[in-house]
Measured scan of single mutants.
Amino acid sequence: SHFELRVGTITLHFDNISEELAEELEKLAKNGVHADEIRRWWEEWLK
């Protein structure tokens, strides 16, 4: 499923992401983690 995450002024787009993972990314964003860090985390997870 597709997921969009708003982090400050940036909107990150994720394809084929589980609800659980989407929730984890939302938690990171709410805790003030920068969009670049979240994207890096996601790319690492995909490997």
Rank of each mutant, 00 (worst) to 15 (best):
S1K: 14
S1W: 11
S1C: 03
S1V: 15
S1I: 15
S1T: 13
S1L: 15
S1Y: 13
S1E: 09
H2A: 10
H2S: 12
H2P: 08
H2C: 10
H2N: 05
H2E: 08
H2Q: 08
H2I: 09
H2M: 07
H2K: 10
H2F: 06
F3A: 01
F3K: 03
F3I: 03
F3H: 02
F3Y: 08
F3M: 03
F3S: 01
F3R: 01
F3W: 12
E4R: 02
E4W: 06
E4Y: 04
E4K: 02
E4V: 06
E4N: 02
L5R: 00
L5K: 00
L5D: 03
L5Y: 03
L5S: 00
L5Q: 00
L5I: 14
L5V: 07
L5T: 00
L5F: 04
L5G: 01
L5M: 04
R6A: 14
R6E: 14
R6K: 15
R6L: 15
R6P: 06
R6T: 15
R6W: 12
R6G: 07
R6D: 12
R6F: 08
V7A: 03
V7I: 09
V7E: 02
V7K: 01
V7L: 09
V7M: 04
V7H: 01
V7Y: 03
V7Q: 02
V7T: 02
G8Q: 03
G8K: 01
G8H: 03
G8A: 02
G8S: 02
G8T: 06
G8W: 05
G8F: 03
G8M: 03
G8N: 04
T9H: 13
T9Q: 14
T9P: 10
T9V: 08
T9A: 14
T9S: 15
T9L: 12
T9Y: 07
I10Q: 10
I10F: 04
I10W: 02
I10G: 03
I10H: 05
T11I: 14
T11R: 02
T11L: 08
T11D: 03
T11S: 06
T11A: 03
T11Y: 05
T11F: 04
T11K: 04
T11C: 04
T11V: 15
L12R: 00
L12T: 01
L12F: 08
L12Q: 00
L12G: 00
L12P: 00
L12Y: 06
L12V: 05
L12E: 01
L12S: 00
H13R: 10
H13E: 07
H13W: 11
H13C: 06
H13N: 07
H13P: 01
H13G: 03
H13K: 10
H13A: 07
F14T: 00
F14M: 02
F14S: 01
F14A: 02
F14P: 00
F14E: 00
F14Q: 00
F14Y: 02
F14W: 04
F14D: 00
F14L: 03
D15A: 11
D15M: 12
D15T: 09
D15Y: 15
D15H: 15
D15I: 14
D15Q: 10
D15K: 10
N16S: 07
N16E: 05
N16M: 06
N16T: 04
N16D: 10
N16H: 07
N16Y: 09
N16I: 05
N16K: 05
N16R: 05
N16Q: 04
N16C: 04
N16W: 06
I17K: 00
I17F: 02
I17S: 01
I17Q: 01
I17C: 04
I17D: 00
I17N: 01
I17A: 03
S18T: 14
S18H: 05
S18N: 08
S18G: 07
S18C: 03
S18W: 03
S18E: 03
S18K: 03
E19H: 13
E19V: 12
E19M: 14
E19N: 13
E19Q: 14
E20C: 05
E20A: 12
E20S: 11
E20P: 04
E20H: 09
E20K: 12
E20R: 08
E20F: 07
E20I: 11
E20N: 08
E20Q: 10
L21V: 14
L21A: 12
L21E: 09
L21C: 08
L21F: 06
L21H: 04
L21W: 06
L21M: 12
A22L: 08
A22F: 14
A22E: 08
A22Q: 14
A22T: 08
A22N: 02
A22K: 15
A22W: 08
A22V: 14
A22R: 14
A22G: 04
E23W: 12
E23L: 12
E23T: 12
E23Q: 15
E23C: 07
E23H: 15
E23I: 13
E23D: 11
E23K: 15
E23Y: 14
E23S: 14
E23G: 11
E24A: 12
E24I: 13
E24M: 12
E24D: 07
E24P: 01
E24V: 13
E24W: 10
E24L: 11
E24F: 15
E24H: 12
L25M: 04
L25Y: 02
L25Q: 00
L25F: 06
L25T: 00
L25A: 04
L25D: 01
L25H: 00
L25E: 00
L25P: 00
L25N: 01
L25R: 00
L25W: 02
L25C: 02
E26N: 11
E26K: 14
E26Q: 14
E26Y: 11
E26L: 14
E26F: 11
E26W: 06
E26R: 13
K27I: 11
K27V: 09
K27P: 00
K27Y: 11
K27D: 11
L28Q: 09
L28S: 02
L28I: 05
L28D: 00
L28V: 02
L28A: 07
L28H: 05
L28W: 09
A29T: 05
A29Y: 03
A29W: 04
A29N: 05
A29G: 03
A29I: 04
A29L: 04
A29R: 04
A29H: 04
A29S: 06
A29M: 06
A29E: 04
K30W: 08
K30S: 13
K30A: 14
K30F: 13
K30N: 13
K30L: 13
K30P: 02
K30M: 13
N31T: 14
N31H: 11
N31M: 11
N31Q: 13
N31R: 14
N31V: 08
N31G: 11
N31L: 13
G32Q: 05
G32F: 07
G32V: 08
G32C: 02
G32N: 11
G32P: 04
G32Y: 05
G32T: 06
G32K: 04
G32D: 05
G32H: 06
G32I: 05
G32E: 06
V33S: 11
V33G: 07
V33D: 04
V33K: 13
V33Y: 15
V33R: 11
V33E: 08
V33T: 13
V33P: 04
V33M: 15
V33A: 14
V33Q: 08
H34P: 15
H34A: 14
H34T: 15
H34I: 08
H34F: 09
H34V: 09
A35H: 07
A35N: 03
A35E: 07
A35Q: 07
A35P: 13
A35V: 14
A35I: 13
A35T: 06
A35Y: 09
A35S: 05
D36W: 07
D36N: 09
D36R: 04
D36I: 06
D36L: 08
D36P: 05
D36M: 06
D36Q: 07
D36Y: 05
D36F: 06
E37G: 11
E37M: 09
E37L: 08
E37F: 06
E37Q: 11
E37C: 04
E37V: 09
E37N: 09
E37Y: 09
I38Y: 02
I38K: 01
I38M: 03
I38S: 01
I38T: 02
I38E: 01
I38C: 02
I38L: 07
I38D: 01
I38Q: 01
I38P: 01
I38H: 01
R39L: 15
R39P: 01
R39D: 02
R39T: 12
R39V: 15
R39M: 15
R39G: 05
R39F: 12
R39N: 11
R39A: 09
R40S: 12
R40Q: 10
R40T: 11
R40D: 08
R40W: 07
R40E: 10
R40H: 09
R40L: 12
W41R: 14
W41F: 14
W41Q: 10
W41V: 14
W41N: 05
W41H: 13
W41S: 06
W42E: 01
W42G: 04
W42Y: 15
W42N: 01
W42R: 02
W42I: 07
W42L: 10
W42P: 00
E43L: 11
E43A: 09
E43Y: 09
E43H: 10
E43Q: 12
E43V: 10
E43D: 14
E43W: 09
E43K: 09
E44F: 06
E44Q: 07
E44W: 07
E44L: 07
E44Y: 08
E44P: 00
E44S: 09
E44C: 05
W45D: 02
W45I: 08
W45R: 04
W45A: 06
W45K: 07
W45V: 08
W45C: 14
W45P: 00
W45E: 05
L46F: 08
L46D: 07
L46Y: 09
L46K: 09
L46E: 08
L46T: 09
L46W: 09
L46P: 04
L46I: 10
L46H: 10
L46V: 12
K47T: 11
K47V: 15
K47N: 14
K47G: 12
K47Q: 13
K47P: 06
K47L: 13
K47A: 13
K47M: 13
